[in-house]
Simulated scan of single mutants.
Amino acid sequence: MARGGDVNQELSELLNELWRSDVNRLKPGTDYTINLQGRAGYVARGSNYARDKARESLFSYVNEDKLKSIETYAHFISLLDNYETSTGVSEIVTSEEMRENHLFLDAILETDVMKCAHKYLVSKGQSPSDPMQFKRQLYDIWFRLYHRERGGGEDSCGFEHVFVGETKYGREVMGLHNWVQFYLQEKHDHIDYKGYKARANKDTPDEDDHVLNLQFSWKGLVKPVGGSFIGVSPEFELAVFTIIFLVSTEKMTSVVVKVDEYMLELVVYRHGRAIGTSFPKLISSNNKDL
């Protein structure tokens, strides 16, 4: 798969089908409200200081009752406290945590989003047609532990990095590209939202946008910019990045797609046979050139 460049029409059509199938996506202004505030500034590499252009939280409101009433979100939330977020510290997976992983995968595999993704991957010869074998493939891609830091134990996995977040040597934030985790960490005063990232003031995103580039601090460390879907279901994110991971053998894959009103660059890094990291970058929305 080519890196970046022109819009990938085949994947755009597929991801729009997933988008239309995502009945568990929450509705901005109804199910949740965000407060974008100011445009975040430049942060020097290695610096842990960022001017705060957002005095208030990103999420003003989230309907947690609705969130927790949807099975895939409920199982997803149960996974977020299962990890030691410092790299270099070996993960210990308990039998209860393994059970939670399987319950989450069972739940998302029942959704139309994952059924559509599975059908496509089977058609491309990238996934087994048997649902249980496909589940094992997903487990290996997202939950199988691996060594992220040299000389350390099995300290990471794709799910932890992308959805939960990690810190490296106590100096930088890695991953944490999920809006539910962001909201919950913000609710407990662990995240300080610094503002949205855009190339110019005239490119202010809208508060109903489902994809944002953000700047924030977490555990006292600054993330200069991180791309995140907002309001989408966990099954949608898992489906999108699983597809890109499996249809490419490159160490790093970057593909440009048009999904709904958003022009996106979707980035996936491999870590052997698993996800190293994956995230969206917002290029434009509402036909605006960012």
Rank of each mutant, 00 (worst) to 15 (best):
V255I: 15
F163W: 11
M252A: 14
F216V: 02
Q133F: 08
V222Q: 12
K119T: 14
E207Q: 13
L14I: 10
R199F: 14
S278P: 04
K115V: 08
M252P: 01
G226W: 05
L266T: 06
I243P: 08
L109I: 04
L221I: 06
Q185N: 14
I141L: 14
I275K: 05
T33N: 11
V173W: 07
A107R: 00
E110S: 09
T111N: 08
L145S: 12
S285D: 13
V62E: 00
K202Q: 12
D289L: 14
A54W: 00
D130A: 11
F134K: 01
V23Y: 13
K251Q: 15
Q181W: 00
S278W: 00
G231L: 02
G226R: 05
F229T: 03
R136A: 11
S156V: 01
H147W: 05
D140A: 12
I141E: 01
N48W: 08
S127R: 06
L264K: 07
G38W: 06
L214K: 04
R150F: 07
Y269L: 12
N286R: 15
P205G: 09
G195C: 08
S284N: 12
A44Q: 15
I244Y: 01
N16W: 09
S228D: 06
V267D: 07
L58M: 11
K251R: 13
K119N: 13
V268R: 11
M174W: 09
D192P: 01
L145V: 10
V232F: 07
V256W: 00
E160H: 07
A117R: 05
N101Q: 15
G46S: 08
D81L: 03
L138W: 02
G29R: 11
D155K: 09
S156F: 10
G151P: 13
L266F: 05
S60I: 01
T167C: 03
Q126M: 13
D208T: 13
D22R: 04
K202D: 12
D206P: 06
Y120H: 14
I283L: 15
I243T: 15
P224G: 09
M174R: 15
E235Q: 09
H161Q: 10
T30N: 13
D31V: 03
F279S: 06
K219T: 10
E250G: 05
D81Q: 14
T249M: 11
A44H: 13
E172Q: 11
N201P: 13
Y32N: 03
G153E: 03
G226I: 02
D130N: 15
V180H: 03
V162R: 02
P131S: 06
Y183K: 11
G276D: 10
L80D: 02
K53E: 13
Q137G: 02
T204R: 14
N8E: 14
L184D: 02
S217H: 09
I77M: 11
L145G: 05
A198H: 05
R270A: 11
G226V: 05
T111Y: 10
G5N: 10
S285P: 10
N178L: 09
C116Y: 03
F134E: 03
C116Q: 10
Y262L: 09
K66N: 04
N201K: 12
E10Q: 13
F236M: 07
F245A: 07
W19H: 12
L121D: 06
G220I: 10
I92R: 00
K68R: 15
Y120T: 00
N8L: 08
S57H: 09
I244G: 01
V93G: 00
F229I: 04
V268C: 06
G38N: 10
D65I: 08
I77W: 10
R270W: 02
T242V: 07
L58K: 05
